[in-house]
Design a protein around this nucleic acid. Structure first.
Ligand SMILES: [Zn+2]
Ligand SMILES: [Zn+2]
Ligand SMILES: [Zn+2]
Ligand SMILES: [Zn+2]
Lengths: 143, 143
DNA sequence: TCTTGAAGCTATAGCCACTAGAGCAATTAG
DNA sequence: CTAATTGCTCTAGTGGCTATAGCTTCAAGA
């Protein structure tokens, strides 16, 4: 059995994060010691490691919740799991495309700035007028 | 003079967002009508358009606050403005690198999955064990 | 056995950049 | 003049944590 601190060190997840995951129902409530401290079975480590790894790959917690639910039914088709991963891949690709456009604009404005005064600064000028931009950065979330 | 709604339509910024910018001190408090409604001068449109465009390019509001402050001093050197843009460029590039690594991992797991049952699903398997990964996704924020 | 320090507990608030909603008051078009 | 729209303030919620305060419990050393 693990204390919350040992579990956190084993999975490299911070203790308040573990409690947060429990609070939102991503981790089941563990048993408690006589003094009311959480005691985790070994299986909790697998589950937490799965969550951590999926987070590192950018999956939102809702998707992770679904994936964990699916992994509890090993005999079912994995189509739903694959669909979640594909949605995540699409989201990642979308972000990359938008970030590359931003990268291009930022490069351009910095290249074009002669580093004089603010009144001649190409950075300030471009930020003030999108007509100076090569791309259309639609207002969507960059997260 | 613009009402908040007209200003928002002109700059394509939502009305509550304008009030939020005022609240955090990014936009100055405008004069009010006899009935306590905000009335903006034309200059507010430039300022708001600047903010919107900088946000579209991913600048955080704190950086935008600094840029607006700098743009009020046209005779000073633009080095500080350029530095803010360069920091933003670095941040964007950093995100792109990390997202490309994620893209690769997600592609790999999807390619390798034979789309059978969950117990054979490569997606679930990879998420459960980082040893299956080609990259080291350090835990840093993907924002 | 006693003590001390680390680790645990709950509860609350904060982060960013908004967004949504309630319940009103003011303005504007017909 | 009326009705629809727009405006006002205030509060709370989003995601995924992180930080703090003020307490209790546990584990190791003397
Ligand atoms: Zn410059
Ligand atoms: Zn632009
Ligand atoms: Zn699969
Ligand atoms: Zn991995």
């Amino acid at each position: 059995m693990f204390s919350i601190g040992k579990l956190g060190r084993a999975a490299r997840v911070k203790v308040p994060t573990i409690r947060y995951y429990e609070q939102i129902g991503l981790l089941p409530e563990p048993d408690r010691s006589a003094g009311n401290q959480r005691l985790y079975p070994r299986t909790a480590l697998d589950r937490l490691a799965f969550i951590r790894h999926a987070r590192e790959l950018g999956f939102p917690l809702d998707a992770i919740r679904d994936l964990l639910g699916l992994s509890d039914h090993p005999d079912q088709s994995c189509a739903a799991a694959d669909a979640i991963a594909r949605a995540q891949l699409d989201a990642v690709r979308d972000r990359i495309v938008r970030l590359k456009a931003l990268e291009g604009e930022l490069e351009r404005m910095l290249d074009q700035c002669a580093s004089g005064t603010i009144s001649d600064c190409r950075v300030i000028e471009v930020l003030g007028d999108h007509a100076n931009c090569a791309h259309d950065h639609d207002g969507k979330d960059l997260g």
